[in-house]
Design a protein around this nucleic acid. Structure first.
Lengths: 236, 236
DNA sequence: ATATATTTGTGTTATAGAACATAGTTCTAC
DNA sequence: GTAGAACTATGTTCTATAACACAAATATAT
């Protein structure tokens, strides 16, 4: 009965927050260059080490950006929601940081505008306001990454997990009940977001639940006591 | 006998790698806005939390950029040598990452061109090539910061120390003997560069010395076996 | 020059969190 | 709808590294 359904996604001018910074000519150029691409759940969008070909704009779904470290251990660096750009760092960097340093994988079915690297580069070179916007994005990301170094190296497990849960809440929001975090993650992903083993993520989530701070049903997590969570985030 | 000596530092056009990207008008503007300032050893240049007023260009000396984490524990984020810009991220970032997120302190007597934030901002807004150069700088720094997250959370002590020593060598170079790392650091600083306690930095340096990988005399460190150091860096 | 503070060095103990082991449970695919 | 795989859960052991304690060596200030 079910027909193959056309996936509804917005036009690039609707989601591209900085569309208005472009000249008419540049708008046409961007619209022509950018191609929409769909990814299924768990699809790899780009891989660490690959030569970057596109700057990407997520318009539907959720994506994780992660690195593979010592002994294949995974570290989630960022988690994206619609309207987020990604893959652009790799295009701009020089020397040893040129190329994708990370993997990008769809958590859920996702749609992405693929903007060819040279188109992105051309636009940035020819439009200072547009460039300035990316400077701001990079500056924010760098601030976050630096902050993360201190968090992940210095905080204890409970503090890291609390921070991760608060981040998920801030990033993806809550469902209508005002409690349920609006993303479903495997324990494994929670672990590699907060730099701990899967066992410890599971254990610590259970402890938080016992303490009445959260409620857990499978992958559904409800925040019951945000203040307490913030306290743990700050003080361990 | 010794007269108060004028400190010899280059003019801004000599060190400002991207000087050529500016128009004549912009050159005059930059030259007028930038003021030279000297800092003595251990002077604080800017403090975490302060509202950023300047983008800075180090022209003489060495500077550490560090954060203060849990219980006042220090984490060195970056170490600068002449010709490095710093403090610019704080100017560009929005939201929670606006403002200096780090402290900057002179390791040795240093000289810095202070470029007012609004001048930097104006130049970037009006010159896309100039802006693009900063995009590249930020992209490199972000790549480095992301890589550091994995290093500091996943590598073991020996690997982290080895990496730190190799970084110091790459960043500051070697003296004429081709062995001595051209920067003097307290054990404390080595520790907060490689995320370990001072005791462990001391102990592990001693072990490396026993193994004939390095030679240590006070703060002077010679690299005797770089290959071995690289091996430890990679494989722990 | 001498006292005081800071840094370096080394041994000892304590512990957070990884590693391992094993089951129960829930997905996924044919 | 059943088999196998992947995920979740929990208990136990082990270890890397922090924390602590103290001494020796340097640096800094008066």
């Amino acid at each position: 009965m079910a027909k193959k359904q056309q996936i509804a996604v917005p036009q690039i001018e609707e989601v591209h927050e900085i569309w208005d910074l472009l000249t008419d000519e540049q708008k046409v150029y961007l619209k022509q260059s950018a191609k929409l691409q769909h990814f299924s759940k768990n699809d790899l969008i780009h891989r660490e080490g690959e030569i970057p070909t596109h700057m990407m704009l997520l318009v539907r779904g959720k994506v994780k950006i992660y690195k593979t470290g010592v002994g294949g251990r995974t570290q989630i660096m960022r988690m994206l929601k619609p309207n987020a750009y990604f893959g652009y760092r790799a295009i701009f960097a020089t020397n040893s940081y040129h190329g994708y340093n990370t993997n990008a994988r769809a958590f859920e079915d996702s749609s992405v505008y693929m903007i060819p690297a040279e188109a992105a580069s051309k636009l940035l070179h020819s439009n200072a306001n547009f460039a300035y916007d990316f400077i701001k994005r990079l500056a924010d990301e760098l601030g976050a990454s630096d902050a993360r170094i201190v968090t992940l190296t210095q905080k204890h497990i409970r503090g890291r997990l609390a921070e991760a849960l608060l981040f998920l809440k801030d990033n993806y929001g809550l469902k209508e009940d005002g409690k349920t975090i609006d993303i479903l993650l495997a324990r494994d992903d929670i672990a590699s977001l907060s730099n701990m083993t899967t066992s410890n993520a599971i254990r610590t989530l259970s402890t938080f639940a016992e303490e009445g701070i959260i409620e857990v049903q499978g992958r559904v997590i409800k925040i019951l006591d945000e203040e307490k969570l913030k306290k743990i985030d700050k003080l361990g």
